[in-house]
């Protein structure tokens, strides 16, 4: 059961600012979603291995080779604030 405090916690972790009304809506909606998934719990899964990935594909690797880098101008093209070659971000803590 999702409580309003869970929604507030998740919102904080995701840096989302929610109004009181939104918190109510999301608490209800998230509970609806969880309720829907509860029906899956009825399936017998005792002998089923937990799934690590939806594709039945394994061991996709690349060789240890250096390739092109993104040109500096493109790297910083979309950043809202910069200082020469660095991204500039607001105070962290």
């Amino acid at each position: 059961m999702i409580k309003k405090s869970d929604v507030e916690h998740v919102a904080l972790l995701a840096r989302l600012e929610l109004t009181d009304n939104e918190k109510e809506i999301y608490t209800r909606q998230l509970n609806d979603i969880l309720g829907h998934f509860e029906s899956l719990q009825e399936l017998e899964t005792t002998n089923v291995e937990p799934m690590a990935h939806v594709l039945s594909l394994f061991n996709v690797f690349r060789e240890d080779k250096v390739d092109r880098h993104l040109p500096s101008e493109n790297v910083l093209a979309n950043c809202p604030d910069r200082d020469e070659d660095c991204f500039r971000v607001p105070k962290i803590v």
């Binding site: 690349r62 880098h69 790297v75 070659d85 660095c86």
Partner: peptide, 17 residues
């Protein structure tokens, strides 16, 4: 990814998407 790991380059030059 295939960006270089070398230490001490100009900032944000050993990066890719």
């Amino acid at each position: 990814c295939s960006s270089s790991t070398s230490f001490g380059g100009k900032p944000n030059t050993h990066v890719c998407p």
